[in-house]
């Protein structure tokens, strides 16, 4: 068994930087995660426009592409939030693993959820998916056959690319699995954020604890329904 190192004296000169403490990292992870969830909700609302038809969807896509500098500001902001979030997550996960070097022979979970205990896995699955997703719809590297389509008004036919892509069970399956991973992640994370930021306590606790699962279900239904609708031919290319 490892021997506990001598504790550092807790005087001010040797005290670690606040953001480097476990709670500091949690706060950083919570804030960056909140930014990412905010984007996920906006992204979901945007892509539900597929149900409104080709014209609305392509106009929305053209509007986003026309934002110019703002678009790049948001992109870099999201990338920064993601990098900070993943970095804090990995640092904390390594610390947490080291805090119990010897596992229990028998351990019965009392309160924790399967989705709460698999945050690292669901997060990593999501990062891998994100790379694929950007290569698919932003860069056109994978499935490029629909990427250059134009609609009747000469706009990029994002709608056509979207609907035709999701007629493939493999592509739709991949997206549904990734959506499940991110929804499970958020189901634990959103309520966790509220406690890390000190909001979830007293009379607010029960409501705060429902926020995560509710957002998880909302994201899953909102994100997964469209590819599935395309696969089932409910949305026509």
């Amino acid at each position: 068994m490892p021997v506990v190192p001598d504790p550092k004296p807790a005087n001010s000169s040797e005290r670690p930087q606040p953001l480097g403490s476990t709670i500091g990292r949690k706060v950083v992870m919570a804030l960056s995660g909140a930014v990412l969830v905010g984007f996920a909700l906006a992204h979901m609302a945007g892509h539900l426009k597929v149900y409104a038809g080709r014209d609305d969807y392509n106009a929305y896509a053209a509007f986003l592409q026309g934002l110019g500098g703002l678009k790049w500001l948001v992109r870099f902001g999201l990338l920064a939030a993601l990098v900070v979030h993943v970095r804090s997550g990995l640092t904390l996960a390594a610390r947490n693993k080291g805090a119990r070097p010897h596992a229990y022979a028998v351990k019965r979970a009392q309160r924790s959820t399967p989705y709460g205990r698999t945050m690292l896995l669901s997060g990593l699955v999501f990062v891998a998916f994100l790379i694929y997703h950007l290569a698919h719809f932003t860069l056109g590297w994978v499935h490029p056959q629909y990427f250059a389509l134009k609609d009747a008004l000469g706009r990029t036919d994002v709608y056509g690319n979207f609907v035709r892509s999701f007629q493939s069970p493999i592509i739709t399956g991949t997206y549904v699995i990734a959506t499940a991973a991110v929804s499970m992640h958020v189901a634990h994370a959103a309520s966790s954020v509220l406690r890390t930021l000190g909001i979830s306590s007293g009379a607010l606790r029960r409501s705060c604890e429902r926020v995560g699962p509710a957002l998880g279900v909302l994201l899953f239904v909102g994100f997964a329904s469209v590819p599935v609708a395309c696969l089932l031919d409910l949305v026509k290319p």
């Binding site: 476990t22 610390r95 309520s191």
Partner: peptide, 18 residues
């Protein structure tokens, strides 16, 4: 107390509620 807790190599809270 937070600095002392970290110095003892306890893990961070993941809000599981165990």
């Amino acid at each position: 107390m937070i600095a002392a807790m970290d110095a003892e190599s306890f893990g961070g809270c993941s809000n599981h509620g165990e």
